[in-house]
């Protein structure tokens, strides 16, 4: 068992050992119980979501009536849904690329450069982390309306890239801070130009952080509603499509979409865990 009580250096008399061991065992089981409760709270809804995607009955009530793959078959025939998935992929990929192209230089600038207005720049970039998405959504909606820019998937991409900038900047910035500046200096001393240093020294060192931030941005964009809600034109992204079907009523079809999203998420999580494994442990 890998559970032990907090490390203690206080020596105990042998006579008290058994009672102490008993207390430790009870202690361990109480902790396992607490952790188990929290995990149950977190996972019951996900299990319910997936389980009912296989239910034969249309109504989502206990007990389940039987197993079927009909809802998945219905999904495959649903053109609107397939278009929505394609739209979401387009939006998420574009927003991720865009936000990386802006976010990585932004993190570099925050870490390596001194410039006037740096404090305000940092505050603005990081703001969307805590700022409700609705504010980003409506402020950009007003901007696009004032300059007479029609709403489309492209405006959604701009909105997502802006909202996700903070995610990329925090992740990449954190990695840059752990990177010794002496590497840059050594590279410069060896005659490398600024670009060579970036592509041959800095970028390989922050690679996993950039990829991690990219995967996270992709997932967040794929799932985004508050900004999309205000910035999309006629086209639906997947969450907006699910949203509109939900308002018409609950169906196991939504659960089937959900189950597929859960499967895709597990895949992405595994990828990002493997990426973290690959990273050498910080020598601390």
């Amino acid at each position: 068992m890998s559970l032990t009580a907090a490390p203690s250096t206080v020596r105990t008399a042998p006579a008290r050992r058994t009672s102490k061991q008993l207390r430790k065992a009870v202690d361990a089981w109480v902790w396992v119980g607490v952790a188990g409760l929290i995990l149950t709270f977190l996972y019951i809804p996900i299990v319910v979501l997936v389980a009912f995607s296989f239910n034969t009955s249309r109504s989502l009530s206990w007990p389940m009536t039987g197993l079927t793959l009909d809802w998945y078959r219905k999904l495959a025939e649903n053109d609107q849904l397939i278009t929505a998935v394609q739209n979401s992929l387009y939006v998420a990929v574009s927003a991720t690329v865009l936000t990386l192209l802006i976010g990585v230089p932004a993190a570099l600038a925050l870490d390596r450069l001194e410039f006037p207005g740096k404090g305000i720049f940092r505050k603005l970039v990081l703001l969307p982390i805590a700022l409700p998405g609705i504010i980003t959504g409506i402020s950009m909606l007003i901007l696009f309306r004032l300059i007479g820019f029609g709403l489309s998937l492209e405006t959604v991409i701009i909105g997502h890239a802006t909202a996700l900038l903070a995610v990329v900047v925090t992740q990449v910035f954190a990695r840059l801070q752990r990177l010794p500046h002496s590497l840059d200096e050594a590279s410069a001393d060896l005659g490398a130009s600024g670009w060579q240093t970036f592509f041959l020294v800095t970028l390989p060192n922050i690679r996993t952080a950039v990829i991690g931030a990219g995967i996270l941005s992709f997932t967040l964009s794929f799932d985004e509603i508050p900004v999309t809600f205000f910035l999309t034109g006629r086209d639906n992204t997947l969450p907006m499509y699910i949203w509109s079907t939900m308002r018409r009523g609950l169906t196991p079809e939504i659960n089937a979409v959900g189950a597929l999203i859960v499967a895709a998420s597990i895949l992405l999580i595994l990828v990002s865990v493997l990426l973290q494994r690959e990273r050498p442990r910080p020598s601390r």
Binding site: L49, L250, I266
Partner: peptide, 26 residues
């Protein structure tokens, strides 16, 4: 295990509670 649910659609995680807590719910 705790962070992973963040990767699963927020909308669907909120929606499940509707299916759990509703009058015809689980």
């Amino acid at each position: 295990a705790v962070v992973a649910p963040l990767w699963v659609s927020y909308l669907l995680r909120a929606y499940t509670w509707k299916t759990i807590l509703g009058t015809e719910g689980i």
